[in-house]
């Protein structure tokens, strides 16, 4: 399992989290290259069907990134993300997926470095969990 490289998909909102993620690059922070990012307009727009599809297709982890609560560009889209994420996470746990495989994180423009740390932490966590068992 030592050389297992988790595949992670991240959905990030167009606003604070995009600025935060990009500032990780601007500030020259570094994180493991396991994350593939997909831009959406708001964390509240991410469709659980797409997340489940990612797991089906072999993602080891999915992370949704949005503005901090109370700071959504669209006022409260991120609360919607939070509600949906928790119910989805509970359901995925019943599917036998460890809850660490689905994360919801808030990233602000000032948190480039924290974001870098977060990706490291998520990657490590998934490395520890090992690959998601696929249906055969």
């Amino acid at each position: 399992m030592d050389n297992f490289e988790p595949k992670i998909i991240g959905f990030y909102c167009n606003w604070s989290s995009q600025m935060g993620i990009d500032s990780a690059g601007v500030e020259g922070a570094s994180y493991p290259p396991n994350l593939r990012l997909i831009r959406v307009m708001c964390s509240g727009s991410v469709d659980p069907e797409v997340i489940i599809e990612a797991f089906k297709k072999g993602a080891d982890g999915v992370v949704i990134l949005g503005c901090h609560l109370g700071n959504c560009h669209y006022r409260n889209g991120n609360y919607n993300a939070l509600r949906r994420y928790r119910l989805l996470q509970k359901t995925l746990e019943q599917f036998g997926l460890e809850k660490e495989r689905l994360r919801l994180e808030w990233v602000s423009v000032a948190e480039g470095k924290r974001f870098a740390g977060l990706v490291g932490e998520i990657t490590e966590e998934l490395r520890r969990l090992g690959p998601l068992r696929q249906f055969s």
Binding site: W15, H73, S108, A110
Partner: peptide, 20 residues
């Protein structure tokens, strides 16, 4: 110079809005 510090709830430093 403002920055939020990765806390759960936004503390309204407003840097995100100002940057936008």
């Amino acid at each position: 110079n403002n920055c939020c510090k990765g806390v759960e709830e936004c503390n309204r430093c407003m840097l995100c809005q100002v940057s936008e």
